[in-house]
């Protein structure tokens, strides 16, 4: 238990200190994970609701696929994005490898299935209840999607937070495409992995505590955001 007490004290010390490396990692973690989950949300939420509205050929297959992708291994996403962005890869010309943008791209792909699946789940029930009335009223597919998204707002917050949670906790994909460059692409999770490998267990755990506090703050923010007026 001493280790946990040490880590807690160290975490408080670190927060009080002005360690530039720490704050760079905190900002980068937030920047990358918020951006990735936001992009996944903007793309995924309408797709998820669209899947709930009126069946089309192959919808079940798409749903099975999306749900399977919930278990997408980060290291595989990292590898795929690495190969895409590599100088020898199809998008090498963009020179995005080992930059924060590459990390955002990887995490967007990683979290997209989460947003789609959870949004579908949140909106499908509303469609069952109100779908007929919407159809009778002559609402277009796009209009139905937007109405469903408004109705399922609480569920959407959960979808966003699940995506953000996966992104901020993730290390395999971002280390691969970001390169864990100090002061540039070193996130909190990468720093934790690094300190662990250096045997600085208390410091690693302290960084973990700070990371959890960050997630807590974002969760609280999203909660307020999602609350009805």
């Amino acid at each position: 238990m001493q280790d946990f007490a040490d880590a807690f004290a160290l975490a408080l010390n670190l927060i009080g200190s002005r360690d530039p490396d720490l704050w760079a990692a905190v900002l980068l973690s937030l920047q990358v994970s918020l951006s990735a989950s936001l992009m996944a949300f903007l793309v995924g939420a309408p797709l998820g609701a669209y899947l709930a509205v009126r069946p089309f050929a192959g919808r079940s297959a798409v749903l099975v696929l999306v749900n399977a992708l919930l278990g997408l291994p980060p290291v595989v996403v990292g590898l795929a994005v690495y190969i895409l962005l590599s100088q020898s890869g199809p998008l090498g010309g963009l020179r995005l490898l080992f930059t924060p943008l590459a990390m955002i791209l990887a995490q967007t792909l990683l979290t997209l299935p989460i947003v789609i699946a959870l949004t579908h789940r949140a909106t499908a029930g509303f469609w069952e209840r109100f779908g007929d009335s919407l159809t009778v009223d002559g609402a277009s597919r796009a209009r139905s999607v937007s109405i469903l998204l408004t109705m399922a707002r609480a569920g959407l917050v959960t979808a966003y937070l699940a995506a953000f949670g996966r992104a901020i906790a993730e290390v395999g994909a971002i280390m691969m495409v970001g390169g864990n460059i100090r002061g540039y692409t070193r996130t909190m999770t990468a720093a934790i992995a690094l300190e662990t490998s250096k045997g600085n267990l208390a410091l690693a755990l302290a960084l973990g505590l700070i990371l959890i506090s960050l997630a807590l703050a974002v969760s609280a923010g999203a909660f307020l955001f999602g609350r009805r007026r």
Partner: peptide, 12 residues
Amino acid sequence: FFVGSAATLLCA
């Protein structure tokens, strides 16, 4: 929250 998210996206 929204501005923050948009800003981080922009910064990135």
